[in-house]
Design a protein around this nucleic acid. Structure first.
Length: 895
RNA sequence: GGGCGCGUAGCUCAGCGGGAGAGCACCCGCCUUACAAGCGGGAGGUCGCUGGUUCGAUCCCAGCCGCGCCCACCA
């Protein structure tokens, strides 16, 4: 096998093919190299697109708008496979709409990514032996801006490599001036409407990041712990509680039992002694307690457990904080200063010494929350934070989907959405960080609290200070669909491009982001939801469908694939798996296959150009059946691609186009065109036009997914400016031609049968075989004998022709071949016997059905008819095979 | 604990009431004048299991087995 690159030494093969081997015509275009080289093309094309301003949307345009806002990548991030998938889908949608004549805006931008970015810069400082506190708030924030300017937003460069047709002139950042203004505006409005409030609540606290977290920033995993049974109190007045968090007992202020639990009825209202502390705490009755779990008695720690906090509220219990912000014990006594995880065994040991431990169950697996940023175990903590009152906002967000104003694709995800918005807790939006939008609230010397709007001056004077906290990053992300368009100003962009057309993102952030954009969009934009459709895709996985993870070593870097296979191949690999909600398995082999597909298009177009294919003038009359067939297929393909695109089924789009391009166009149409081109004349002239037409349309259809190679080829083929701005194909129903399709199907069948015979007989492609054909007219392909001969490599019967084998094909075509004894009669007989068995089975099946009275009366007429046809076809096959076997036994058995 | 989904060719998946499909991998043959990143041919599946509905089930229903995901404040 020749190595790639070391190709055949055929004369003229490697050299640029500029001469037409069939007509001698010289190609009209600069020569295309024989193998597609993505790197140079991509760089040149992208620069050209930007220079031409194709992606810059015009708010003053008369065209209907089509808008997508990008799921804003983190400023700290780089392009991973998830982006490659997400961006490929969006770019495909936006490019198609642009071609369809919409004013298409794909809005790019970056998220300031509060915790993530602060962590990056803090790590840098740590390397210098500094902490953010050494710098102070102002200098630290300046340092983060400096970091952003120098190393942030790497992904925006990688997006250019992927070919994203975003409008760079509108690039936004969640911390830039217009977006900051949007944040200040909505905060003020929500505050004034009573939808933002400050309260002391149990929140998720990360003892490492030292900040509050919202529910969605907490990941739960099943961790092993131990359930410890501890006796509180003495004798009659004692109760055994079960806990996984013994260290919090120092903050217990009650024991709770179920009101209907007879075992403990006598204890309700009684006080028991809390071990190790000498404090006495009451036993209270609360319906929250599950009598089935543990002992049916729960220790109550209002300051360190959300349930206990609520029990405490109901019963007027005090909250006793015994852990500080780092999770270190603050309660006076021998445990003071111990970390929470050191304190736990220490306290259990102390209790055991006192004989308080009744029993231990280990291991006990239960769900434990972890910080989604650093995986530290989250500590429920009582603290003073800012919250968004979500109930009314979430109701509106649910209604917008319920009443159909917003559609979620795939529909199955809708239920998940409802589960989320219908059960949403108030959203903790304050973070104890420095990088982010500072909460615009000032506190006065006498306990005043003033929320300051974007155009207002904060209160000045001694004793006034601004809230130290910043807002959750997702707060500004939730404004993205309208803050990027200039809200709160009434801008031309906002009027033209809001609401956006579709939001494309992974199902993993349906809740994180989508629900919140819905809430804020509906609120800020007077009930107009931020998008019409939410199109969810899945996660990119490895070729075994496994999640990509660093520890597994199966992570793919899309930039690596772009370098080695090209951006188009990378995009195609993503797109061909991208159906709504479906995970996308990818692998390097598949990316190589995608590269091969691009190369196939390259060579098909190269062939077409060297043979004078063009797109000038209308399609001629007098087209052959083959020409009419490919145009008929093209019309079908356009319609199907449209349908799949509208359903966000990119994988189907790819499937349809792949098979049309490779099977129909390359394997059949081009092969059938070759002899016509070689013969020259008006038929060849017609083929040149049809071939140009088919490739022109095909390249347009492919362009949204593989923009680079299609632009390079399309401009070479058509001489047009760019396929980026070429009109999207419209299916021409008048080109549908069932007769031509049937004719070509029959032709393909005959050719395939002959090829199979040749392969079975071990006849080399190079071995010329003379043959006599008959019965073509009966099969409806009377005109195609030359095509059958050239495609199946059969010579005309010359002098001394002697038929040594007869092949009978479905439809009554008979091929007599002069194989001069090369034929293996035994092998051929074996094959025919196999065919006969299959045909008999088929016929028997059909006969059985048709003999069934119930089938005939109950089944729909078309099904019965279809079955009759199946039977007829099977019987014809049987007759054909019997005839062939007869001929065979009449022939001579070869050695 | 609640909800959703999936088990079809070696792998990844499509099909979802009437003839088992694709890509890759595999086998055989080919430098056939666009492409060896290619061309032609081929093999490979009791459609998870058990019942039910139906003239007919990979497809609908029920149960079971196996797998995955999401949500969740049972200590």
């Amino acid at each position: 096998m020749p190595e790639p690159g070391r190709r055949s030494g055929r004369p003229g093969h490697v050299a640029d093919a500029t001469g037409d081997p069939y007509t001698g015509r010289v190609s009209q275009t600069p020569s295309l190299p024989p193998v597609y080289q993505p790197a140079e093309v991509e760089q040149r094309r992208y620069a050209g697109w930007i220079e031409a301003g194709y992606f810059t949307a015009d708010a003053a345009s008369d065209k209907p708008p089509y808008t997508i806002v990008i799921p804003l990548p983190n400023v700290t991030g780089s392009l991973h496979t998830g982006h490659a998938l997400d961006h490929t889908i969006q770019d495909a949608l936006i490019r198609r709409k642009r071609m369809q004549g919409y004013e298409a805006l794909w809005m790019p931008g970056l998220d300031h990514a509060g915790i993530a970015t602060q962590n990056v810069v803090e790590r840098q400082l740590a390397a210098e032996g500094l902490s953010r506190h050494d710098l102070g708030r102002e200098k630290f924030v300046a340092r983060v801006w400096q970091w952003k300017a120098e190393s942030g937003g790497m992904i925006t460069h990688q997006m250019r490599r992927l070919g994203d047709s975003v409008d760079w002139s509108r690039e936004a950042f969640t911390m830039d001036e217009p977006r900051t203004r949007a944040v200040r505006t909505i905060f003020k409005r929500l505050y004034d409407d009573g939808l933002i409030y400050r309260a002391e609540r149990i929140i998720n606290w990360c003892p490492r990041c030292l900040t509050a977290l919202s529910d969605i920033e907490v990941d739960h995993s099943d961790d092993e712990g131990e359930l410890v049974y501890i006796r509180y109190g003495e004798g009659e007045r004692s109760v055994v509680v079960a806990t996984t968090r013994a260290e919090t007992m120092l903050g217990d202020t009650a024991v709770a039992v179920h009101p209907d639990d007879d075992r403990y009825r006598h204890l309700v209202g009684v006080e028991v002694e809390l071990p190790l502390t000498g404090r006495r705490i009451p036993v209270v009755a609360d319906a929250h307690v599950d009598p089935e779990f543990g002992t049916g008695a729960v220790k109550v720690t209002p300051a360190h457990d959300p349930n206990d906090f609520e029990i405490g509220q109901r019963h007027g219990l005090p909250s006793l904080t015994v852990l500080d912000e780092r999770g270190v014990v603050t309660a006076h006594g021998p445990f003071q200063g111990l970390d929470r995880f050191e304190a736990r065994p220490a306290i259990v040991a102390a209790l055991r010494e006192q004989g308080r431990i009744v029993k231990e169950v280990r291991p006990y697996v239960h769900a434990v929350g972890h910080c989604s940023r650093c995986h530290t175990t989250v500590e429920p903590r009582l603290s003073l934070q800012w919250f968004v009152r979500t109930a009314p906002l979430a109701k509106a967000a649910g209604d917008a989907v319920r009443d159909g104003r917003v559609r979620i694709v795939p529909e199955e995800m809708t239920k998940r959405y409802f589960d989320w918005v219908d059960n949403m807790h108030d959203w903790c939006i304050s973070r104890q960080l420095w990088w982010g939008h500072r909460i615009p609230v000032w506190y006065g010397p006498d306990g005043e609290m003033v929320c300051v709007g974007p155009d207002e001056e904060p209160p000045a004077g001694p004793g006034w200070r601004q809230d130290e906290d910043v807002l959750d990053t997702w707060f500004s992300s939730a404004l993205w669909p309208f803050s990027t368009l200039g809200w709160p100003e009434d801008t031309p962009d906002l009027r033209k491009f809001y609401p956006t057309s579709v939001l494309v993102t992974g199902y993993d952030i349906l809740f994180f982001w989508v629900a919140r954009m819905m809430m804020f969009g509906l609120y800020a934009m007077d009930g107009v939801p931020p998008f019409h459709v939410v199109a969810l895709h899945g996660m990119v996985r490895d070729k075994h469908g496994k999640k990509m993870s660093k520890s597994f070593g199966n992570v793919v870097d899309p930039m690596d694939w772009i370098e080695r296979y090209g951006a188009d191949a990378t995009r195609w690999t993503m797109a061909r798996g991208a159906n709504p909600g479906a995970d996308v398995p990818v692998s390097e082999e598949w990316c190589a296959g995608s590269r091969n597909f691009c190369n196939k298009l390259w060579n098909a177009t190269r062939f077409a150009l060297t043979n004078g294919a063009h797109t000038r003038g209308p399609l001629p009359d007098g087209l052959s059946a083959v020409d009419r067939w490919i145009l008929s297929r093209l019309s079908q393909v356009i319609a199907e691609v449209d349908e799949r695109f509208e359903a966000y089924e990119l994988a189907r789009v790819c499937d349809v186009l792949y098979h049309f391009a490779w099977d129909d166009v390359c394997d059949w149409y081009l092969e059938l065109a070759k002899p016509v081109l070689a013969a020259g004349g008006p038929a060849a002239e017609r083929v040149r036009r049809v071939l140009g037409e088919v490739l022109d349309q095909l390249l347009r259809l492919l362009h949204p997914i593989i923009p680079f190679v299609t632009d390079e080829l399309w401009t070479a083929l058509t001489g047009g400016e760019s396929v980026v701005i070429a009109p999207w194909p419209v299916p021409d129903r008048s080109r549908r031609d069932e007769a031509a399709e049937a004719e070509v199907a029959a032709l393909q069948k005959v050719v395939t049968e002959i090829r199979r015979f040749r392969a079975d007989q071990g006849l080399r492609p190079s071995q010329r075989v003379a043959a006599r054909l008959s019965g073509l007219a009966g099969a409806g392909i009377a005109d195609h004998e030359p095509l059958v001969r050239s495609t199946a490599r059969l010579d005309d019967p010359g002098e001394g022709f002697a038929a040594t084998a007869t092949l009978t094909v479905t439809g009554g075509v008979v091929v007599e071949l002069d194989t001069r004894g090369a034929i293996d009669v035994a092998a051929e007989r074996a094959r025919l016997e196999r065919d006969r068995a299959a045909a008999e089975k088929e016929a028997a099946q059909a006969r059985a059905k048709l003999a069934n009275e119930a089938f005939l009366t109950r089944a729909p007429a078309h099904v019965v008819e279809q079955t009759r046809q199946r039977l007829a076809a099977a019987e014809e096959d049987l007759a054909r095979i019997a005839a062939a076997l007869d001929t065979l036994s009449g022939g001579r058995e070869s050695a």
